[in-house]
């Protein structure tokens, strides 16, 4: 098992890098723990703690900026949380080697998503210039301030979006990795939600998904409390540091570097099985 100081440093580093790259820290933390010899069934709960801590650290500023669409997030969480709870219950009965393959597939998918390019679909509309950036009551629509002014948006393809969130929930429940790398692209590509809103809403929803799965793994007695404190501290510090230095570096370059790292980690995980 990795020492506690090393675990704190690893959690800080992965949470910082994950925040900067937009993946979340656990997608790096859990595979590295497994490659360090930690059982996947033990690493997964630590990943969930990292997800929840990182999300909590980022939540106040994202909420204050008016970027989170709560109605959309909670609607999407219905399938994500149900799937995460079911997968977390099942994960206690899945062999470690199978969980490691799942983790490799997750790292590979996150890496490939990180290498993809996001296009700007929503544009500013002058007639909305007087509207503050917020979600609109009773709907899954809203507006935010983007390049050129206030940009209105409307959620489309809610059904396929719910299916994608269920997939993200299964990923979280089985592997302990936050499903943000599934949720954000799904909201962006399937539902036509602007990138900034999708990312902020995903940060909110991954905390709910992680909490749902944590309830189950806590009930199964799979949380090592001392290690959880180390990862929680690292996740909080890394999340805050990452969001503070976000403007000083090139996120696109870092995102590509992390994506390539994740693909390499996936290959090593498969070879190690």
């Amino acid at each position: 098992m990795i020492s506690v100081p090393s675990l704190v440093l690893l959690a800080v580093a992965t949470a910082t890098a994950g925040t900067l790259g937009g993946f979340g820290g656990a997608v790096l933390l859990v595979p590295i723990l497994v490659l360090s010899g930690v059982e996947p069934s033990v690493a997964a709960p630590l990943g969930l703690v990292s997800v929840a801590a990182g999300s909590l650290a980022a939540a106040p500023s994202q909420l204050a900026n008016g970027l989170v669409h709560h109605r959309l997030g909670i609607t999407m969480e219905i399938t994500a949380s149900a799937a995460a709870i079911t997968a977390a219950m099942a994960s206690a009965h899945v062999p470690g080697a199978a969980l490691q393959v799942v983790l490799a597939l997750v790292a590979l998918a996150a890496g490939l998503v990180g290498l993809s390019h996001a296009e700007m679909r929503n544009v500013a509309m002058p007639e909305f210039s007087g509207e503050p950036p917020a979600e609109w009551p009773g709907t899954l629509d809203g507006a935010y301030v983007g390049p050129g002014g206030v940009i209105p948006y409307r959620a489309r393809h809610v059904g396929p979006g719910l299916v994608a969130m269920a997939v993200a929930g299964v990923v979280t429940g089985l592997s302990g990795v936050g499903g943000g790398f599934v949720k954000t692209p799904a909201m962006r590509e399937l539902m036509y939600i602007p990138m900034k809103v999708a990312a902020a809403t995903s940060t909110f929803t991954v905390a709910v998904t992680a909490a749902s799965a944590l309830v189950v793994v806590a009930g199964q007695g799979r949380i090592v409390v001392h290690d959880a404190a180390a990862v929680g501290l690292g996740g909080l510090v890394g999340g805050i540091v990452g969001s503070r230095i976000q403007d000083r570096i090139s996120p696109a370059r870092l995102r590509r570097a992390l994506a390539i790292t994740l693909i390499l980690v996936a290959v090593v995980l498969v070879v190690q099985v």
Partner: peptide
């Protein structure tokens, strides 16, 4: 005391989003 603090941390991380 450390175990209690760690347990409360996990409870906080579960409880806050809910």
């Amino acid at each position: 005391a450390g175990t209690v603090a760690g347990t409360l941390l996990v409870a906080t991380l579960i409880g806050v989003p809910l």
